[in-house]
């Protein structure tokens, strides 16, 4: 469904000068700085998959999404979305993809939510009966009824995000790009968004590409992740395989009698009772626990290794 090969995007901008005349020099300069946002990224995503596209800030995630939607033209490399090159066939690609950005909204700020949703129906030429059915389904899934007539500027962040999700799915696109859809949301709102994504994928076999910093989103929704940093793919595969391959050692956390807490790495293959006995012989123990490696620890470790 989505094929990306050696995708590269280089941004070019005028060089910024400092000093008293810096702004003027910046305005007039012919010197340019280049920054490679995406650097030879390759992956394939099959229909119906939910893939987590992860990376630290500035890793190139959003730039990739913008190229997948056809808005940005790559500097080099290939993208095919359902057999189409997005930036060459923008119109057909636009009908096939829905996009949600957590940090910006497609809803018209000054108008009631329903106006933005109706506009989406018009822009994608959704027949009236199909639009009414889609809108009813979105209202049921996302609980929109209470604020359909409320101006977007008066909605809470969670309500706005639900409105954005509805706007992205009203025309039933087979592909959904979600860029940090849960950023800033409270626990309940996050849960509602996750349930909507899972339901959309289950019912409509919608392919979902999810970029997020919230690894709970990934653990709840994705079986596969693509990790990128500095525009390059660091890992592409299943979450379980990632944890197995990159997991840091398990740790024994010991609370000592004098309220001090100490942590001991459990070396691979070493029996835990043996380590506990050794620690107990040296320290009076009040409590102890074993910390299993979590996804966050794994990913932190991979990023740290890529920094070296």
């Amino acid at each position: 469904m989505i094929r990306v090969e050696s995708l590269t995007k280089v941004f070019r901008r005028p060089h910024t000068f400092s000093g008293p005349l810096g702004p003027l020099r910046t305005l007039l300069t012919r010197r340019y700085d280049e920054r490679t946002a995406v650097d030879g990224v390759s992956f394939e995503i099959s229909a119906g998959e939910i893939v987590g596209y992860l990376g630290p800030n500035g890793a190139g995630k959003s730039t990739t999404v913008k190229m997948l939607t056809g808005i940005l033209t790559p500097t080099s490399g290939l993208i095919e979305v359902d057999g189409r090159v997005p930036w060459r066939d923008r119109e057909a690609n636009a009908r096939a993809v829905g996009v949600v950005f957590g940090q910006r909204s497609q809803l018209w700020w000054d108008l009631p939510l329903i106006d933005s949703l109706r506009l989406v129906g018009d822009l994608y030429d959704v027949p009236a009966a199909r639009f009414a059915g889609s809108l009813r389904r979105m209202c049921d899934l996302l609980g929109l009824d209470d604020f359909l007539q409320t101006p977007v500027r008066q909605l809470s962040l969670g309500q706005r995000m639900r409105g954005d999700l509805a706007a992205a799915m009203l025309y039933d696109p087979p592909i959904l790009y979600l860029d940090e859809p849960t950023v800033g949301l409270d626990v309940m709102a996050k849960q509602a968004v996750r349930e909507f994504i899972a339901e959309t994928n289950r019912l409509g076999r919608t392919t979902v590409v999810l970029t997020t910093h919230d690894l709970a989103d990934v653990e709840a929704l994705c079986e596969r992740i693509i990790l990128i940093d500095k525009g390059r793919v660091l890992y592409d595969g299943g979450i379980d395989d990632l944890v197995t391959a990159y997991a840091p050692p398990r740790r024994l956390v010991v609370e000592l009698a004098d309220d001090e807490t100490r942590t001991f790495e459990i070396a691979a293959g070493r029996p835990i009772p043996e380590l506990i006995a050794q620690v107990a012989a040296e320290h009076p123990i009040r409590d102890l626990s074993i910390r299993e490696p979590d996804l966050e620890g794994v990913i932190t470790r991979i990023y740290a290794e890529s920094e070296r």
């Binding site: 000054d110 018009d122 101006p151």
Partner: peptide, 17 residues
């Protein structure tokens, strides 16, 4: 239809405040 939709939003925008 898409253009009529945009025109409707433009008109509603005029009356928003």
């Amino acid at each position: 239809r898409p253009l009529a939709g945009m025109a409707r939003v433009g008109m509603r925008f005029q009356f928003a405040y």
